[in-house]
Design a protein around this nucleic acid. Structure first.
Lengths: 336, 336
DNA sequence: TCTTGGCAGGTAATCGATTACGTACGGAGG
DNA sequence: CCTCCGTACGTAATCGATTACCTGCCAAGA
């Protein structure tokens, strides 16, 4: 139906091999021959058929982006940032949603591999990524972000959780709060790093950390848009009732949603009754009343790094796998 | 490298043709022959190579989803709903972001067509989709949603904008508000339909519509996450200062963001000073203070319909193109 | 003069499926 | 016995590229 290389070859009076070599610059072609080919390409408005190319060459110029929750704006921002780097290099992204379900994640990866993706960028649903080993093997490079992939051999882009939490807690301390609670929606390595940053800040301010003020939800990771379903509502109650805490460090946005819900329902004032700082900045946190102080992860940079590392790997960088840490930015608003 | 049909054929002692026909049920194969093939497939853990299949057969079991803004949760929810229908039918979705940029939209469509997608589901950036005619032609069916595709010949899934706006306005009227303003972030056909619903409600309540209370922003469509950048902040000021309006119907979430920003900055109370109803429900509207009454579009149903219609078209439904309208749901909260 | 080697480009196998066409067999009808 | 048709399956062309290998030519060196 469409125009194929054969048509171009015929029109230019050369073989398809030459056309291919002109297109891919994979061997020298004389100036005038090349010109004839290029003209024929323009004249016929020819485009290479990516499917045929993939079938033969084994690589697709596609990168699979396996994300645990596409409705989470945090991930989508990172995805777009990745795209911004990869697109100009001729790579296309295939977004795919795991819905926080390891089984789907597995299917997704399998399906992407069958489509011959040149690489996988993954925000894993769980910490156990051992099964990916068998699946991916050395079929293509894998780059992880947001959560550590257990002991899977691949690069990993993470946020400076420790420093970020340290900074947020420090802000609360510098404003005079001394009974600072910490809530995380669930206990993960990421959350633990943040808790450690929080603890260190207390230590440096000579405030004794009270383990009763550090609480984690128990559930599996939840979709943000399901909100309130998590435990953070109750955790907040535990910390805030009876004025046990005068400030709260929320380990992630989900925790913040729970905290704010509780606080509003009980008509408490922020920051007079309880001050808040939240790890993660979602744009609607700024719409909340009052707007919340946040420790913002640098999605742009996380995405850029993931993309760059991926390009390196595709191009054959054989150095040992690394862990990259992206600094956070503290965004002071009026909740503390 | 991997296992191919040839291996299966060899193991089962048949030709590749038979294997293919077993897989696709495209011609009768004797029971025991079929069984041998299936066993070989299991034994070798064979999977068809989708790329080869696409190259030969011309269809890819892929549906391109061209969306004007992937960071908009509204679109993403629809996308996931579409996926939920298409996936069990063996179709995969390729999400692709136009970033509200018609040029990118064009590129995206072109690139998807080159990948032999079996269909396109499009949330167009603009009202002028005439150029798609040349691009898509009859290469694959196209289904549109959220915005009308001008005079492009394709099915179209839209919200009952008129009825929805009518219902929202009616709620305000029934609560006694009489000076109800209408703001839309920009003037589009969609927004016009909503404005007409609003007008009709006023008419039915014998309230004279005041054109000075009906305002539209001028800009191109904006990404929601850029917020406040739009005109709706100023439009709100025009309507609310001097108490010209006692209630506001926001034509979409973007308008609501602007309105709420203005109202908060000026320390007005909702609903005492100004009541609010918003077309579109975003989950953070419920977190706002007070939670906003909203006219919710049924994303699930929009997605389901789009997917179903697409399947019909792929399977050769040749009926004339239709426009589908999905009812809204009124979600009363405490902002009016 | 005869090898050698570099250049320019063509030939055809190949990737892994789908599918039009061909063949072999067996039973029914004349 | 011959034809005709249906069943069951194989053969090989095909989709549109990439790429290993080959050919022809010309100049340099022995």
């Amino acid at each position: 139906m469409g125009v194929s290389m054969k048509d171009v070859a015929r029109m230019a009076g050369v073989s398809t091999a030459t056309v291919s070599h002109v297109l891919n610059e994979t061997r020298h072609v004389n100036g005038d021959t090349r010109e004839k080919v290029l003209q024929a390409i323009r004249a016929l408005n020819y485009n290479v058929n990516p499917i045929a190319r993939t079938l033969r060459s084994g690589h697709s110029h596609m990168i699979g982006l396996v994300i645990s929750d596409l409705t989470n704006l945090f991930y989508m921002d990172i995805a777009l940032s990745i795209d911004k780097v990869l697109n100009p290099e001729g790579y296309h992204l295939i977004y795919i949603n795991s819905d926080e379900d390891p089984a789907k994640e597995r299917d997704n990866i399998e399906s992407l591999l069958m489509q011959n993706v040149d690489g996988l960028i993954i925000a894993p649903t769980g910490k156990d990524c051992s099964y990916m080993q068998d699946l991916i093997g050395d079929r293509c490079p894998a780059v992880f972000f947001d959560r550590k992939p257990g002991d899977f051999p691949g690069d990993c882009i993470l946020t400076e959780n420790f420093d970020g939490a340290y900074g947020g807690t420090e802000l609360l301390l510098s404003r005079g709060y001394r009974n600072i609670g910490f809530i995380g929606s669930s206990f993960t390595e990421t959350m633990d790093e943040r808790a450690r940053g929080y603890r260190k800040a207390l230590l440096d301010y000579a405030v004794e950390a009270d383990d009763k003020l550090i609480l984690f939800g128990s559930g599996r990771p939840l979709r943000l848009s399901e909100q309130k379903v998590g435990d953070s509502f109750k955790l907040t109650e535990t910390l805030v009732r009876d004025r046990k805490a005068d400030a709260l460090f929320c380990g992630n946005a989900l925790a913040a949603v729970g905290a704010v819900s509780y606080i509003k329902e009980n008509r408490l004032r922020i920051p007079e009754d309880i001050a808040l700082v939240c790890f993660d900045d979602m744009f609607w946190l700024s719409m909340s009343d009052p707007p919340l102080t946040a420790v913002d992860q640098d999605r742009l940079e996380i995405g850029r790094t993931a993309a760059t590392v991926m390009l390196d790997r595709i191009r054959g960088n054989g150095e040992p796998f690394r862990e990259y840490r992206i600094p956070t930015k503290l965004i002071p608003r009026s909740s503390c």
